[in-house]
Amino acid sequence: DVEPGKFYKGVVTRIEKYGASINLNEQVRGLLRPRDMISLRLENLNVGDEIIVQAIDVRPEKREIDFKYIP
């Protein structure tokens, strides 16, 4: 289970102007929005990149997770 405040290694699977889709595994994925990137710009991400993200909002009833990137 993903817990708010914990850090996870994820893989960038899609990049859109509203954010990047991050997969932690086949069943768990979430969104990294541009506003939640401290020192990383969306255009510097590539599909397949592995990054460390922090879960900031977990809504299991909607199967949604928001991530934050902290270098």
Rank of each mutant, 00 (worst) to 15 (best):
K62R: 12
E50M: 13
F67V: 04
I22Q: 01
E16K: 10
N23P: 01
P71V: 08
K17A: 14
K17R: 13
Q27N: 15
L45I: 09
L32D: 02
Y18W: 15
K62H: 10
A55G: 01
I70C: 12
K68H: 06
P4K: 14
R63G: 15
G19C: 08
V2A: 04
P71G: 13
F7Q: 03
E64Y: 12
R63S: 13
E64K: 06
D66V: 12
D36Q: 04
I38E: 10
E61D: 13
V11D: 02
S21Y: 15
G48W: 04
E61K: 09
L31G: 01
Y8V: 00
K62I: 09
D49I: 06
E43Q: 10
R29A: 14
I38T: 11
K62W: 09
N46R: 15
V47A: 01
I51Y: 00
I38S: 10
Q27R: 13
E43D: 11
K62D: 10
V28Q: 09
P4W: 07
L45G: 00
V12Y: 15
R14F: 09
R35Y: 07
L40V: 06
R35F: 07
G19R: 03
A55C: 15
F67G: 01
D49C: 08
E3Q: 14
V28A: 05
E16D: 15
R33M: 03
I51Q: 00
F7R: 05
R14K: 13
D49V: 06
D49F: 06
I65W: 12
I51T: 00
L24M: 04
P71N: 06
Y18N: 11
G10N: 01
T13E: 06
Y69R: 01
V58W: 09
L24E: 01
L40W: 04
I52T: 10
V58R: 04
E50L: 12
D57K: 15
P4M: 13
I52K: 04
V58Q: 03
L40A: 06
E61I: 07
L40M: 09
L42T: 03
Y18S: 10
V12P: 04
L31R: 04
V12F: 02
Q54Y: 12
A20T: 03
R33V: 04
E50A: 09
V12N: 00
L31Y: 08
I15K: 02
G30Q: 03
I70N: 09
G19L: 04
L40K: 05
E64T: 10
R29M: 15
G48H: 02
E64S: 08
D1S: 14
I22F: 06
K6S: 07
M37A: 08
L40H: 05
M37N: 08
A55F: 06
P34C: 08
G48Q: 03
P4E: 11
K17Y: 13
E50F: 15
S39Y: 13
R59E: 03
K9I: 11
G10Y: 04
G19T: 06
K17G: 08
I51H: 00
R41K: 14
K68R: 15
R14I: 07
L31P: 03
F67Q: 01
R29W: 15
F7K: 05
E16V: 07
E3L: 13
E50N: 09
R63D: 14
V11P: 01
A55S: 04
R35C: 10
K6I: 06
G30F: 09
E43C: 12
N25L: 05
G5Y: 07
F7E: 02
N23K: 15
D66C: 10
R59P: 03
I15S: 01
Q27I: 12
E50K: 10
Y18H: 15
S39P: 15
S21T: 15
N23V: 13
R41H: 09
G5L: 07
S21N: 08
I65P: 02
G5I: 02
K6G: 07
V28W: 15
V58E: 03
K9M: 10
Y8E: 00
I56Q: 05
R63H: 13
V47C: 06
I22W: 07
L31Q: 06
E50H: 15
V28N: 06
E43F: 08
R63A: 13
R41D: 08
G10P: 00
E43M: 07
E64G: 09
G30R: 01
V28R: 04
I51A: 00
S21R: 13
T13F: 06
N25G: 10
I15C: 06
R59W: 07
I52G: 00
